[in-house]
Design a protein around this nucleic acid. Structure first.
Lengths: 262, 262
DNA sequence: CGGCTTGTTGAAGAGTTTCAAGCTTAGTGG
DNA sequence: CCACTAAGCTTGAAACTCTTCAACAAGCCG
């Protein structure tokens, strides 16, 4: 059986979503994934009413401009994006990558102007929520407020993990960590097909996410590839020796909890 | 007027708290600070009932053990602490420093076991809250749930800022950034007396927070001191040339918003 | 076809780490 | 009261990781 035709049902779901804007929340293909916590019918109905349509961005477009303010909060429906901060001389730090199910905008809600920017890596479909009604959500559905805190805490955990990498791991260790981590996150939302995931991240993105120069990122990536640990070809990432990557990154693969989806 | 006797009333408040465990929330000296958002009488009463006593730690003690689980959430009442993560070979990354008013434990609430450890830097007084009742808080006082999300988002912003430093700034820039940032945070909770703040952070802590070696941290710190930018003496930090530090760190001093205190 | 983006490689240079040693201070116990 | 110890700070020198500079190749698109 060829790799291309052996497409899991989850992957098919996620793949199918790529081209189409999100429909009703009750039919949301993301929500069908085991990665996300179930919600009650009432909660689902409220989420649907909280949602004000959708937004689409082309690859490379700004979703959130740094320091600007926005009226919207978003959930990624399909596609990849990333959050970043820049220094005044142009140096850029990618804070995290955003995959389907990830929430965007909570940090800005509680600051004066977005403390970070966000940019689409691929064509991006987002579910859109008005900030002005966020407080109503807490008042009317405290359980969803609880979920939002959960999502904020999870986002913090992801950043903490990256900070550990950038502060303590060597270049090879950082890259191993990033590859495993992104692969796993993509895997749990059904983006892995035939042991590979569509990978829209350039070497410049990897460099900016890990605090490395482009040249050194390239050389380290090549070294790991030569060692048979991974392969990035035709815009797809494969982990060829997951165990070795984990050992290199000092990464313990623990089962992932289900997370809320708003 | 000598610097030592010119102690602001805020500093006096905070200083007074050092030795005594926190009393009733209505009399909380922290809450009197302009740094924190006001709460209604009902909210205050609920916070008081949510609180289950206090906890004290000596300098160097573990508040949260990495990977362990705890039944408690905390707010720092007085003293300094820090959150950290370690790799299996002992390399340690300090994720953030914790000052009075900072909340501890939200990340753990939504993960299996604390994703990070926390350690006291000084004698530490904490207000203690039972995790088991967290959900009640959201249900009964959604406004406090909203505040918790706010605190989680703020914590994320702090970590994002550090990640930008560690990923993109040079050693000197990182250290300048850290000094300014910690000084400002201490200032807003009334810990600055006579243009100096009690500074319980060792060079090893700075190194671990910024992803630098101890030796290089020392040499860079000395260089900034020789340039007259700062002084750390007798366990107290002074910013001798705040403007130059800000220029070095590419840091724009923006007014800080009031933040919730739970 | 030419221009732009992304990836690749070699060589030189700089920033940072590691190794090693000594200093100061505070605390402890004889 | 002083020797002893431990923790933190300081400094020089050597080694190394990573960055910068420079150049070219491959793929894509108007």
């Amino acid at each position: 059986m060829s790799i291309d035709t052996r497409r899991s049902s989850l992957a098919a779901l996620a793949h199918h979503a790529d081209r189409h804007p999100p429909a009703a929340c009750a039919q949301c293909p993301l929500r069908a994934l085991p990665a996300f916590s179930p919600v009650s019918a009432k909660e689902l109905a409220y989420i649907q009413s909280f949602r004000h349509g959708s937004a689409a961005f082309a690859a490379g477009q700004d979703v959130l401009a740094e320091h600007a303010t926005s009226e919207w909060l978003y959930t990624v429906f399909s596609g990849w994006a990333f959050r970043f901060k820049t220094l005044s001389d142009g140096r850029r730090q990618i804070l995290n990558f955003l995959l389907p199910g990830d929430f965007i905008g909570l940090q800005e809600q509680f600051a004066d102007g977005a403390p970070h920017g966000a940019e689409a890596l691929t064509e991006l479909q987002l579910c859109r929520f008005p900030k002005a009604e966020l407080w109503s959500l807490y008042r009317e559905f405290p359980s969803l407020g609880y979920d939002l805190t959960w999502l904020a805490a999870r986002e913090e955990n992801l950043t903490d993990e990256t900070l550990l990498s950038v502060g303590q791991r060597s270049a090879a260790e950082r890259i191993a960590m990033l590859l495993i981590h992104l692969y796993r996150r993509a895997e749990r939302v059904g983006l892995v097909e035939g042991a590979a995931v569509a990978f829209p991240v350039t070497q410049q993105h990897i460099a900016d996410a890990l605090g490395l120069s482009l040249v050194h990122t390239n050389k380290t990536l090549r070294r790991l590839h030569r060692l048979g640990l991974h392969e990035i070809a035709d815009g797809r990432l494969r982990l060829l020796n997951r165990h070795a990557l984990q050992r290199l990154a000092d990464y313990a693969e623990r089962p992932m909890r289900t997370i809320p989806l708003i």
